[in-house]
């Protein structure tokens, strides 16, 4: 044998688990480049889709923290997004409050609601808890509807585009930059929580509560902390959504939205942070994908009316397929493919 490394050997070496962190850096760098060059090539439509994905990512990260890490199931996510959106909208309309007040105010509102609606989690678990969080959804939707009636009609609230340091954020590109920053910030917040004392307590409570308590973890406090952080982030995502659309109406926040977020974290991969991004990407793109597919089917015109029904059905189907065949989501799928690739290379 010569000293030369055979090409297949080299690639095996590069894919060895030992170089995992190096590979993570490589993938992150690639991703960073893609994110930076994207707006230079994207059409306004593509930018809008990208911005929707980024907004969804922030919401998905906060639900991932609550459900994926702390194990508390919530159907109140849409209600919290609505609460954030309305906080920003009402403050803007009634007091002319700027962006830099609207966002933290939404965060505070979300945190408070999270504290209140986290209380049932001290008694209830699993599906029962999920049902109790439904109350949050309906209360917020009711309050929002009442406000809309009060200000006249059900037209919703118009919000002028925000400005930061004198720059008006009113183009798709400007929003893209702002939302990329927001998503990175949301990622850092969740990552820092997950890898610290609080995050370990989340995981412990998610595992077995009696054991967590025997380890010295205050279970009630831990759950409420999870609800407060998650709800606060969710409401901020809602406020961003309101500013982005320039318009808030309660109709945008149906229970279906909560289910979409749950789908994001399941499809992405419960208990993983990259899963929140992958899930947000997948669930946001799915309707566009279906539309494209349906448009190419014969008799597309006839099916145009039922596109929503097709969307719902496909969505449900995808969720079931993931729950049955890949419970660890896209992240699990990715890891499995990676491993298979490794084994394939090692045995020629």
């Amino acid at each position: 044998m010569s000293d030369q490394v055979h090409p297949t050997q080299l690639s095996t070496v590069m894919l060895q688990p030992a170089s995992r962190s190096a590979r993570t850096i490589f993938v992150s760098a690639l991703l960073a480049v893609a994110i930076i060059i994207f707006p230079f090539f994207a059409t306004p439509f593509h930018l809008d889709v990208a911005n929707q994905i980024l907004l969804a990512s922030i919401g998905a990260l906060s639900l991932m923290l609550l459900t994926g890490f702390a194990g508390q199931i919530s159907l109140g996510h849409a209600g919290l997004i609505a609460a954030g959106a309305f906080t920003a909208g009402i403050l803007s309309k009634e007091a002319g409050a700027p962006f830099w007040i609207g966002i933290p105010a939404a965060g505070a509102t979300g945190g408070l609601l999270g504290l209140i609606f986290g209380l049932p989690s001290l008694r209830l678990r699993g599906v029962y808890l999920a049902v109790s969080t439904l109350a949050l959804h309906f209360i917020v939707v009711y309050a929002g509807g009442e406000y809309e009636n009060l200000v006249g009609g059900s037209g919703g609230i118009l919000i002028p585009p925000p400005s930061l340091w004198g720059l008006k954020i009113n183009t798709g590109k400007a929003w893209y930059v702002l939302l990329v920053a927001g998503a990175i910030l949301a990622f850092l917040v969740t990552w820092n929580v997950v890898r610290s004392r609080t995050g370990r307590a989340f995981a412990a409570v998610h595992g077995r509560e009696t054991v967590a308590a025997a380890l010295g973890i205050n279970v009630a406090r831990t759950k409420l902390t999870a609800f407060v952080i998650s709800s606060s982030m969710t409401a901020i995502a809602g406020a961003l959504f309101a500013y982005y659309r320039g318009f808030v109406s309660i109709e945008a926040f149906s229970l279906y939205l909560s289910i979409q977020y749950i789908a994001m974290i399941i499809i992405g991969g419960i208990g993983t942070l990259p899963g929140a991004f992958l899930g947000a990407l997948f669930v946001t793109l799915l309707p566009y994908l279906i539309e494209t597919v349906v448009a190419h089917l014969p008799g597309a015109q006839a099916m145009a009316g039922s596109i929503f029904a097709v969307n719902y059905a496909a969505f449900g189907l995808v969720m079931i397929v993931f729950l049955v065949f890949e419970p660890s989501g896209l992240v699990g799928l990715w890891r499995r493919l990676e491993r298979r690739l490794l084994i394939g290379r090692q045995s020629p």
Binding site: V193, R197, T198, A203, A204, I217
Partner: peptide
């Protein structure tokens, strides 16, 4: 996780 009570950090 067993050092939860001893670790003095806040959220």
């Amino acid at each position: 996780t067993a050092r939860h009570l001893r670790i003095r950090t806040n959220v």
